[in-house]
Design a protein around this nucleic acid. Structure first.
Lengths: 232, 232
DNA sequence: CGTAACCTTGATTAAGATCAATTCTCGTGG
DNA sequence: CCACGAGAATTGATCTTAATCAAGGTTACG
């Protein structure tokens, strides 16, 4: 929690700003730490501005009326979240009351975020074209992500979804080992299923010698077979 | 197909442009007509630029390896589609080969679209801030849409999804009558189900005196009961 | 008026959710 | 350092939803 404006340079959205702009942005930031499962905002709250994640992990999720939770998105450090409403009604009524589009909570302890209040950000964005292009790029990536997410949950069964997830994690890790930094319940919720089903799918993959699960670490023994699952 | 640049004024993305900018944009446009089910692009094709819909309806969809189709989005006249890649890699490799993020086909006959080639659009966008803000607004709305779509298909059963769809259509129509302008098969695909299940759900709603289906027109007899379904 | 696409209805099946019971893991306090 | 308890994970049995398979019926259009 002891840091300076340089911390903002690691935020994708701000990576093209010059020192002066970074300083201004830093002066807007309201930093806050959260512990595991602590809510950051709910989808019923009035919109204050968007957030950036410095440290830890954040889940963006929705809850059905029966209480089922679905994690739409897991935010990694360096990324921003809840930016959708920033420009949503830019050409309509700028003062239209808006709520957050989903819920957000810290997935792990020591999650540090900052809030950039809408009222400070918009005027800056208007005179800083680069940040608009960054915003465009960021929203585009998010859209692509959501498209893939929709494709997965609507067209793939649980085995395929898990295979796709494991392969994408494997891609990041370079070694053949994946370490989950959240619970399997959270993973299940992200994959659009429940713990029991996820557990069974892990068991199936293990019995087929594709993976080896030991607590939160997963060893990928047979990536090509996993790839089969992700396609067929 | 006989028209002039004024046709672009009905496109949300261009509605803030001045006459000169509209003219420039119009000079970029490549217009084309499609008949029902004719493909506009596939998710394997190299990206050429984004599209706008003048007349008709367009479906944006994905297909699973088993051949199941899921309609992610139904585009209405005045809207643009396939804009995601425009700014996606703006700060990375601008020449990175990119494909369309999904498939697109005309949902109805006499669908008229225009293509704005990437190479012409980007330079214009760079010197026209307003269009960037429009783009931001447009992408934001799309994101919100997708969020709701994910929420629906992941947390709601078919009855609820149909109820939500009918209520949103009812909202637009002002009278108590909804007219589907595409097949029920397409609606099923959009709701993440199949014709048979949709048919049964329609039958269920009819037997409960909530709606009255007659071909492609649906009379909403009991909106409050429909609202119940959309929540519970 | 005939054919093809569309839609409906019925029977069956399969995937995965739910319910229930244990076991495992790990942090906390004695 | 160990014991305890709570949350997490696993496993089994059952149930529910909706997909699939199959067969007619209806509509639209050349």
């Amino acid at each position: 929690m002891k840091h300076n404006k340089d911390i903002l340079k690691k935020i994708f959205l701000f990576s093209e700003l010059n020192d002066e702009e970074i300083s201004t942005m830093y002066s807007f930031c309201i930093f806050k730490n959260y512990s595991k499962n602590e809510p950051i905002f709910f989808d019923t709250e009035p919109y204050r501005g968007f957030y950036g994640l410095v440290e830890g992990l954040v889940k963006i999720y929705k809850i059905s009326n029966e209480g089922r939770e679905h994690i739409i998105h897991i935010v990694n450090p360096g990324n921003t979240f809840a930016e959708v409403p920033v420009f949503e009604y830019y050409f309509e009524d700028k003062n239209k009351p808006v709520v957050y589009p989903a819920n957000a909570s810290a997935l792990v302890d020591d999650t540090e975020v900052f809030l950039i209040p809408q009222k400070y950000f918009l005027p800056l964005a208007e005179k800083t074209p680069r940040i608009c292009f960054k915003f465009l790029s960021s929203l585009s990536k998010r859209l692509k992500h959501l498209n893939i997410h929709i494709e997965n949950i609507s067209l793939a069964d649980v085995s395929r979804r898990l295979a796709i997830f494991l392969l994408s994690e494997l891609n990041k890790s370079s070694s053949g080992i994946i370490t989950l930094d959240f619970t399997k319940r959270d993973l299940a919720s992200h994959l659009g299923t429940v713990t029991e089903t996820l557990s069974r799918t892990f068991a199936k993959f293990q019995s087929e010698k594709i993976i080896e699960v030991k607590g939160k670490t997963i060893l990928i023994k047979n990536p090509s077979k996993l790839k089969q699952y992700s396609i067929i």
